[in-house]
């Protein structure tokens, strides 16, 4: 495996000025498009992107426009990882060497529908980077609950009312599920910390074999937030401890950010329309769940 020190650093000053995701029709302030754009800029021109049904394929491929400026294809919803594995194998058979295959799938396309193909891809250790941009619901089809929707979220399939406070399940622990495959490299990131995300994509680019990045990407339309705050919200989620930044490498977990004190969870939740209805007891439930998780992470990952 390539050593971390050998990898050339990428930042805003030295990254390519080419845009590979340009002129797309994503909502103003879309967090997912920041993740896709930055990842493609780090990976460079020699990239094959595979996108299952989801926001980024819907906004990038509106006929006759083509917002992707490098090779990109829409895949079947459950088969994005296997199609990417096929692309990688095909390019290898053609004798190509300096390329990277990447999947951009939403949270539904990763944690629910595309999961079996992703699991198979990691099992076979195909040379594919799988990036899951997590906006915490099926946003493209009009905000339905997915496996990564957190507790208390109001969606169209889990409406908040007198009987239930919106979604009653907690977020699936996707990062640890992926790490349990003994994958070569997996990481979580947030668009609120762009340099951290860039570093992780850059690291994954230089790893041969299956890699996975789970990036938290805000969605102003689905979350009921003003468009200009989408990066701030993604940062607040990390600062409040609801999203953690971690890596899994060589069988070891590493916590990248271990804040001494968390920011107010209530403040983070009340900024968003999808959590506005939550009672104090619901917020307490979110905080308890967070503390339990952090206790476990601090015990085992530090």
């Amino acid at each position: 495996m390539t050593k971390v020190l050998d990898i050339p650093k990428v930042n805003a000053k030295n990254m390519t000025e080419k845009e590979f995701f340009y002129g797309h029709k994503a909502c103003a302030g879309c967090g997912g498009s920041i993740a896709v754009r930055l990842a493609l800029k780090v990976l460079g021109e020699r990239t094959y992107s595979a996108l299952p049904a989801g926001c980024m394929s819907a906004v990038g491929f509106i006929y006759p426009q083509m917002a992707f400026n490098s090779n990109a294809i829409i895949t079947t919803f459950p088969g994005s990882a296997s199609m990417a594995a096929g692309i990688a194998a095909g390019a290898k058979a053609l004798g190509q060497k300096d390329f990277k295959t990447v999947v951009f799938a939403g949270d539904g396309g990763t944690a629910d529908i595309g999961f079996q193909a992703l699991s198979g891809m990691i099992d076979r250790n195909d040379d594919v980077l799988y990036i899951c941009y997590d906006n915490e619901a099926y946003m493209n089809t009009g905000i339905q609950k997915s496996g990564l929707t957190p507790y208390g979220t109001k969606t169209t399939t889990t409406p908040a009312g007198q009987n239930i406070p919106g979604t009653i399940t907690h977020k699936k622990n996707l990062f640890e599920i992926i790490a349990a495959h003994d994958i070569a490299y997996a990481a979580t990131a947030s668009i609120g910390y762009p340099q951290d995300f860039i570093n992780k994509v850059n690291k994954a680019k230089h790893v041969k074999g299956a890699t996975f990045i789970h990036v938290y990407a805000s969605c102003p339309t689905g979350w009921g937030t003003p468009t200009e705050t989408s990066v701030e919200i993604a940062k607040d989620a990390v600062d409040a401890g609801l999203i953690f930044l971690a890596e899994y490498e060589d069988g070891e977990y590493k916590l990248n950010r271990n804040p001494k004190e968390f920011k107010s969870v209530e403040e983070y939740l009340k900024k968003q329309g999808r959590f506005k209805h939550m009672s104090d007891a619901d917020i307490q439930c979110v905080i308890e769940n967070r503390d339990k998780k952090w206790e476990r992470m601090r015990k085992n990952w530090l």
């Binding site: 029709k25 006929y63 006759p64 426009q65 083509m66 917002a67």
Partner: peptide, 19 residues
């Protein structure tokens, strides 16, 4: 018409300025 289901990469017939 394009050969595949899409035009070539970076084909942008519409601007977004009106948004």
């Amino acid at each position: 018409y394009p050969t595949g289901p899409q035009y070539e990469a970076g084909f942008l017939p519409e601007k977004n300025a009106g948004w």
